[in-house]
Design a protein around this nucleic acid. Structure first.
Length: 260
DNA sequence: ATGTCGCATTCCATGCGA
């Protein structure tokens, strides 16, 4: 069972790239972020034709998350609990058949929070607190669970090409890192870090300043695994080659294989 | 290097968010 996460930065623009990726890798689940379209604009039929069920939580212009699944997936949550006034589409959760039970998967697009410090940073922190509370509830289910997405969090200095340049950025501020640590400390495993300590293992390169050519990257896309999922972890891969394609997203997919 | 994108607007240039 392969679960992938990819901030695709406009699913309409990058549909050919997505279809190529699904054909090449054959993931069982793909969690997408930054769809940048409404539900009715999502390229549903093309993705269904490729053999995937589609759950979408879209939004005009910005944000938007989806879960694509070869197996029939049941929507469990649309929107992150904890604030009925939050209109941004940044969270969707589903369950699908896995072994004798289910696998629970969430596609997460955590707020960027820049410029910092501003009300955008406060929104990010509040969102992280809400994610923490919901994740705590989910762990009580004692299921295999993958919280997959663009966290907009650089966990550690080795996850950014120049830590000193990022200390005041909302992706690397002490409060951001502290909240991410607290989330993990509920009992999650950072899938990538369970498999390698290698520095310069990035999932994002800015479009500006030749960041890709200079390997000025960030590791901000993460797969957090519940204990029941972590016990089944086989391997993790970052599909870095997707950044070298024509018209790439600024993020690349990250995927984990779980033994069923 | 404020150096790139993608989306939206009353729209062919500019603002916003990342």
């Amino acid at each position: 069972m392969i679960v992938a996460s990819w901030n695709i930065n406009s699913v309409r623009l990058r549909l050919p790239l997505l279809l190529d990726y699904m054909k090449e890798i054959g993931p069982d689940v793909v969690c997408l972020q930054e769809l940048k379209c409404l539900d009715e604009q999502f390229p549903r039929s093309e993705i269904e034709d490729a053999g995937y069920n589609v759950l979408v939580h879209g939004q005009k212009s910005w944000n938007g998350v989806a879960i694509l699944s070869r197996r029939p997936a049941e929507e469990a949550k649309r929107g992150l609990p904890g604030d009925e006034n939050d209109a941004q589409s940044r969270y969707i959760e589903a369950t699908l058949p896995f072994g004798q039970g289910v696998l629970r998967v969430a596609s997460i697009y955590l707020p960027n929070g820049n410029p910092a410090p501003t009300e955008k940073t406060e929104y990010k922190y509040a969102w992280m607190d809400r994610l923490h509370a919901h994740a705590r509830d989910l762990l009580k289910l004692e299921e295999p669970l993958v919280l997959a997405g663009d966290y907009n969090v650089i966990p550690e200095p080795e996850d950014v090409y120049d830590p000193n340049a990022w200390v005041n950025d909302a992706l690397f501020r002490p409060d951001t890192r502290r909240k991410f640590r607290a989330l993990k400390n509920l009992g999650f495993t950072d899938a990538l870090r369970a498999t390698t300590d290698a520095a310069k293992t990035y999932t994002f390169w800015d479009y500006t300043s030749g960041a890709w050519q200079r390997n000025n990257g960030l590791r901000i896309d993460h797969l957090l695994l519940s204990p029941q999922a972590a016990d089944r972890l086989v391997r993790v891969a970052i599909d870095k080659d997707m950044r070298a394609k024509e018209k790439p997203s600024d993020h690349v997919p990250i995927r984990a294989e779980l033994r069923e």
